[in-house]
Design a protein around this nucleic acid. Structure first.
Lengths: 236, 236
DNA sequence: CGCAAGGTTGAATGATCTCAACGTTTGTGG
DNA sequence: CCACAAACGTTGAGATCATTCAACCTTGCG
């Protein structure tokens, strides 16, 4: 695929790149795919590539000694895996669904950053966005009730999929993660998550086609259920 | 104060700067101080400066609609407040103690970044470190027990104060935050925090001189109580 | 068909929170 | 110097939300 035709190009690390830069990126990139459940990078490993998520969902997971785990990051297109110049990974990086990555050798990407200020600026912008998102999630993990957590997660999925396009009600959406991964991302157990989803259904806020496909019936109600101040402004 | 004499210089955003760059920074910086409890920047405001923390502690706090709050970041010397190019703040930024800041006009700092690649590189490095720290904290908030949270916080204070200097046992340390702020940072109530500190005391792991000053009697025990895998590698 | 994986539901337990009283320290004014 | 208030912290008892453990349901696939 040519970068110019890439579905994520308008919002990825290469979003601000000139035509000439894109041609160079075209020559350097390699597509990689992983099946759902495959481990892309283990905590403590030195990454052999950095990459943009083109399709699918990737989780970043941390572990405690006794095996408890927490999903600390959810990467959807056009998020970026890895940071140039960082050594060993602090998380397990796992394909939560079948995924397609646009990858680069870390060294090569280092020179791209040095030589393409537009890429470098966009990477900084994305890192700051990630940091803000992580802090929003800290508020969720530390202070929100189970119900608020689940509503916030659904709201985030909706916002990321249909950023700012107003009328989302009744459109069919797809959960990017399994129940288990969602529970882990929210700092809940599977069972609690399941009950809270049931409660959003019976409140007439959501409707499920199957386990993964859902519609928002009452967007206003969903937003109210998040506990957030107003439009919490999740990242586009 | 000249930058060359600055206590935080070796680890701050200017750490890699040449002598000439330091002279330029000297001319552009302004020191600001705030008293404990003062609000430096309110959520939603556009910052009028960016700054390095030279002395004291700063908290970043987020709020829910009904007033629940969560400390989502703790800035100690030589951490940086604000990111160039980011608009409105997402958090309340509050002086948790009397503090001294080394500040710059955001526009000015923007040109510094453009013109001093060493500063720019160090800022990226610090942003990535902050993101890793935020994700470590997500694991804490989502999965750790109250006891593990408190042990982790104390361990973090010890590590930040005496990074990697092995023998910390019996040295007198100072908690950078009040009980209320610590509780908020850990996603606990004040009361639960108080009980867990009492429990670390009676376990013979900590000893308190007064409310704020403490000694680690059993560093090994403290580390075991964090629940972390091994040396969780908190940022230097 | 039968099994495995993923998800739901129920009942009991427990860690943390809530509410409330009490203790300690610090600074202020008489 | 003492009395007092205010801020900060501790301790106790009861309530609660989420977890745990267990059974059960659903779907897809060899």
């Amino acid at each position: 695929m040519k970068c110019a035709d890439c579905p994520i190009h308008p919002r990825a690390f290469c979003a601000r790149s000139s035509r000439g830069e894109l041609d160079r990126l075209d020559a350097l990139k390699t597509y990689r795919s992983f099946r759902a459940g495959e481990t892309i990078l283990r905590s403590g490993d030195v990454p052999s590539f950095v990459a943009s998520v083109v399709e699918g969902a990737v989780t970043l997971t941390r572990r405690l000694e006794d095996g408890r785990t927490q999903v600390v990051g959810l990467l959807l297109p056009p998020d970026f895996i890895g940071h140039p110049g960082r050594g060993r990974s602090e998380c397990d990086v796992i394909a939560a669904s079948d995924i397609l990555l646009c990858s680069f050798d870390p060294e090569t990407f280092g020179s791209i950053l040095r030589e393409m200020p537009h890429v470098s600026a966009q990477m900084i912008h994305m890192a700051i966005r990630d940091l803000d998102a992580a802090r929003r999630w800290m508020l969720l993990l530390g202070r929100k009730t189970a119900g608020e957590k689940v509503a916030t997660f659904i709201d985030m999925v909706v916002r990321r999929k249909y950023a700012n396009r107003g009328d989302v009600t009744d459109m069919e959406m797809l959960l990017p993660l399994s129940r288990g991964d969602i529970a882990s991302y929210l700092g809940l157990t599977l069972e609690t998550l399941s009950r809270q989803i049931a409660s959003l259904k019976s409140a007439g806020i959501l409707e499920f086609v199957d386990k993964r496909r859902f519609r928002v019936i009452d967007l206003e109600g969903l937003r109210r259920a998040t506990g957030d101040d107003d439009d919490g402004g999740l990242p586009g």
